[in-house]
Design a protein around this nucleic acid. Structure first.
Lengths: 160, 160
DNA sequence: CCTATATCGTTAGTCTGACTAACACAACGG
DNA sequence: CCGTTGTGTTAGTCAGACTAACGATATAGG
């Protein structure tokens, strides 16, 4: 998704980025999201994991076994991409995929013991990474930050 | 980049998204950034503009004429993508591209009167869009939010 | 029961945006 | 002069978000 630093070439030299740009919340948001994403993706990669793994495992842990479509809804991963994610998880024995006897269209996905252990490990990894992400903020500020993000996100999530 | 809503299928039904996921700042950040980006991109599209147009115009306005490479550094747009952006801007007569007499490798990019008018217009559009983006927050909260974002971004920008 | 419609897992493919590589050319420093 | 470095440009890679369509079921309504 993203690899390098800025726009080609070496260091920024002078910070000539226009103020108009630097102030806009949308730009701050997207820039920070990019860095955050890099941090998380790289951090998880060091543990041979990907964010989607975490999302699926967490969902299974919290709400129990589910069909792929259901997992897709919980995690925000597209049904079509779920296949691949589950293949990866199954290849690592973190998850089991078995046909649903009650509905033969479905597969029932179950988290394994290994999967639960893995989730725990990933939770620690993510804790550390978030510590790095939010390093400049005090605990109170971190809370506030999360709270602001949550309010904004809620507001922009289906106000239907 | 992104078009639809969530992961396929209709409304979320129950909000079965695991708490672990919903609390993580990285996830809030990336989700919100996605919505924000959609908002901005769509809003600008209604005015036949794109974010890169704004970035370049703003940079020209604030720091004066520059080479393409220089603009690239200021705006964070890759040198290779700058070409296309400037083509679009030139096609709309918002910008003029002329060879630099002092350095024949360079093009000097200058903002036009039309371009200045356009920038002003885009600034208004963006003000409105940000108003929508930050709707749930009080003025003080908006400031605080921007300040938190800035601190975080600064911290993660070349701590070299 | 029969038929229409919706859901499931899966495959394939599109589109966009970030990013790399390599080019011909010109400038610059020794 | 020569090697190095910056410039504008073209081409292309890669990943992730997303759509379309498939055969297989299930489910609801008449």
């Amino acid at each position: 998704m993203i690899r390098g630093e800025a726009a080609d070439v070496p260091g920024d030299g002078a910070q000539k980025t226009p103020d108009r740009l630097r102030r806009r919340a949308s730009r701050l948001l997207s820039q920070l999201a990019v860095r955050s994403d890099r941090l998380i993706t790289d951090g998880l990669a060091r543990d041979d994991a990907r964010k989607w793994h975490y999302a699926v495992l967490a969902s299974l842990q919290e709400y129990g076994p589910a069909s792929q479509a259901e997992l897709s809804r919980r995690s925000g991963i597209y049904r079509s991409d779920m296949v691949g994610v589950l293949n990866e998880l199954a290849a690592r024995d973190l998850v089991e995929r078995s046909p649903d006897p009650g509905d033969r269209r479905r597969n029932v996905i179950t988290i394994s013991a290994e999967g639960r252990r893995r989730l725990q490990r990933l939770d620690e990894v993510l804790d550390d990474l978030h510590d790095e992400l939010l390093a400049p903020l005090s605990p109170a500020e971190r809370d506030h930050f999360v709270q602001l993000l949550t309010r904004l996100l809620d507001h922009h999530t289906q106000p239907s």
